[in-house]
Structures are given as C-alpha cells and as structure tokens.
Write a protein that binds this DNA or RNA. Sequence first.
DNA 1: CAGTGGTCTAGACCACCCA
DNA 2: GGGTGGTCTAGACCACTGT
Lengths: 236, 236
Amino acid sequence: MPDAYYLQLTEQLRHLITQHAAQWEGKLPAERALAERFSTTRVTLRQALAQLEGEGLIHRSNRRGWFISPARLMYDPTRDAGFNDYVRAQGRQPRTAVLQLESRAHLPAARALNLPDDHVFHHIRRRRYVDDRAVLAESLWVVPERAPELLSIYASQSLWGLLRERWGHHLANRSISMVSEALSPGDAEELFVAPGTAGLNICRAIFDDQQRPIEYDEEHWLHDSLCIRVELSGQQ
Amino acid sequence: MPDAYYLQLTEQLRHLITQHAAQWEGKLPAERALAERFSTTRVTLRQALAQLEGEGLIHRSNRRGWFISPARLMYDPTRDAGFNDYVRAQGRQPRTAVLQLESRAHLPAARALNLPDDHVFHHIRRRRYVDDRAVLAESLWVVPERAPELLSIYASQSLWGLLRERWGHHLANRSISMVSEALSPGDAEELFVAPGTAGLNICRAIFDDQQRPIEYDEEHWLHDSLCIRVELSGQQ
DNA sequence: CAGTGGTCTAGACCACCCA
DNA sequence: GGGTGGTCTAGACCACTGT
C-alpha cells in the first residue's frame, strides 16, 4: 500500500528506532547521517521523521535534534489532582518553572467566567516538565476576589491546593474544552520546540458550588506528551 | 520574531484566506499560482500551508487541493447524544455511511471490556460526515450477548438509541481516552485525506449500571473538525 | 569553531482529478 | 488530456548548539 518512498522510510526508521533506542540514549543520529544511510535527501528523510513525529514516536528539540518520545502521561482534566501528584503517581519526575506573576485583564478568561471584559485577574504563567522535558506551558487567571494576596505568596506549589486550603474554595463546576493546535511562536519558544509544532490546547473555567467564578486556565501541551483519560459513572 | 519567510507567508495567507473565503467558495487557488503570487517555491509555500493546516484553518482533500476548514463541531464524548442529534443541534448536516458489518474478535476491545482475548464482537465500521465533509471513521465493537441480532437490523441509525430502546440498556459507566495521532493509511483513505494527516483518536469502553460490558468504540477524527467540550458539576 | 538543524531554491516526474 | 497535488533530487546558506 505505501508506495511512496518516505512511507517505506517511515517504517524502516520505526524499526531502527525501537531497536537502537537504548544505544542511542534517546537521541537520533544526525539527519545527514540518516539520509546517507538510506541513500536519500534530507528533504525526504525529514518527511519520514515528520510522520513519526505526528504519531508521537519522536519529537524535536529546536535546533538540537530528534529525540525518542517517552511514554505519554495519563491526564484527567476533570479531576482536581495537582500536576505534581499525578506525575509522581505515574513514576515520573515533575518540575515547574514560574515564568510570570502579574495582574491584568484577559478577555477569554472574562468571557469564560461571565465577568466584565475588563475584569482584572491574577495571572500566573508557568512551564511544567516531566522527567526534565518541558511539555506544558500554561496560564492561570484567578479571580482576585477569591484569592486576594495570591501573587505575593505563590511560589510554584499546587494552585488548587492553595485555593482549597487557604481560602476554602470548593471547585465544583467546570467547563472544559480541548482542541488540537499548532503552537504559537511564543508557546513554542517557551517549550523549546520549533514554531508550529503540534500541540493540544485545554481550557478550563472553574466555579465553586455556588456558581461563583474562581479561575480560568489555558494549557498548551506538546501533542505527543499526554493521553487524556476520563472515567465516568452514572447516567448522563 | 518570525523572520523565516514561510512564517511571514503564513500570516499573509491567513489574511488572504479570510478576505477571499467567499469568492473562492472554500477552495484555495492552485499551489503553483500561490507560489508565483508570492514569488517563492512550492516547497516554501507548502510549508506555510502546512502551518495553517496545523492550526485547523485549512485542510487538504487528497490530490484535490486545499480547502478552508469550516467551524469545529462541538462534541462531548461523555454524553449519550447521538451523532445525528448533536450535529443537527449545531445547525449542521450529518450523514453516515456504513462500511462494514461483521462478527470477529478484537484484542483492544476485549482488553478494554475485561473479556477474554478471543471474545467475538459485532463489528460496525462507519464513516460520518458533517456538511458533506468526511470527518470521522469509527469502529464499534458491541458485545453480542447484549444485542444478539444487531447486525441483521442495523442500518446507520443511532446505535445507542437502539441499545436503549430495543434492549433496554443503560449506558452508565464509561472509560474514555483521547490521544492525538497521525491517521493510518487505511483511516486516511477512508476519510479521503493524505496518509499521516493529523487526527484525534478517541476510544470508549462502556458498561451498564451493573458493570456489564456493552460496547467499545474507536473513533478517528480529522484533527481540525472538532472541539471537545465537557461540562461537569459536583466535586470530583 | 565545527557540525547541526532550519530554511530555501529551482527544478523534475508521476498519479490522479476533473473537464 | 491538461492541470493538479504528491513526491523527490541536489544542492545552498544561515543561525544556532555544543565543545
């Protein structure tokens, strides 16, 4: 069926990668070396690599080369479990870098939380790692009335833990949306990948048990880094 | 920031497309024409088009050209609403083509439903359209004990409607997983797109209120055709 | 500084779609 | 049968990475 050479190449590379994964220590040989080994051009070789990238088998670190992708992280966006907890529960190592703390308005957050367009939020921007690979760039927009001194006390711990323990909020109602995307140049740079790399965008609007808006967040994941999982019981 | 020419091209094309959408009737001019208009090569032009494809703004119909993508379909995989119902509710036109009806074993279904590896299922393979664009290829694996004569009476209606009305099943517990994927050559062909086109794979295992397995399904969506939406209330 | 990936050129051939 | 998109070649230059 696959008569195009780059599709045959894709299969050969797939086998090569699974066989030599250990010996290469996760990093593929240089493109020119691979192209020569298969007697083809870099263009065609890159077409095959792009296929495997789309499948989630390998990924690129911008200008540093091709790497074998680790197993996907299981993630249930409907649960309250903090990032650190569920990453560790899967035997992986979480890490967080806080990129920005500020207060300002944000239209999508205002719209999603049914607040005036110019409402000001506490904004936390952070980058999250799994096993030292940056996989997630996210922005949190917290309603300041619910967590007044947030920005002065926040330091990369669990936000939902804080909201629960310090301010006694119960995250009861949530509206979640997920779409595939191409990472914006900004998001791509923060995750050290090439612009336009495939990503998954997850947005959540969260309200308490009295329908008061609490928080809105925008997550940009590398597309190959996660598997969304939702378990539900009870009739819908 | 975007000094690469193909990224500038991406922006120019984005504007061109939004302006001329109506006049072009959804189909972009030929690649050679566009490349000439921007004084570049087809390779670079295609790189820019691929960016817009990743964003979901345009898509390809295999060997027929580039088309402007319609608005994403909102889809809540946690609900029981039938495809026809929720597509119509969004003012769109649903259509279904049944591709295959058979009985056979399927390992992933058996595993997901906690049945023996060689358990035989009723298998329904179908293609679903929204406004005459094929957007979904799916396989349903129904436990025959729950719907014995399914294959002889099924004809593209709502499967969940049938299960409920004819056999009185309540779809109570479900386990859902979603991952981005590159469409397999087979799935791509069924959806009339190029092999390796970005897709979204959704799998569901469904049990009744007594935890008896009912059905397992595998969905392959074009990545730009939908927006997953989940609304939840109550604490998790 | 050497080598790498990212980008780009200027062609070519073929299978397939559509008129 | 003409034109299209899909594929492929054989180069090139540059910015950046890692040493």
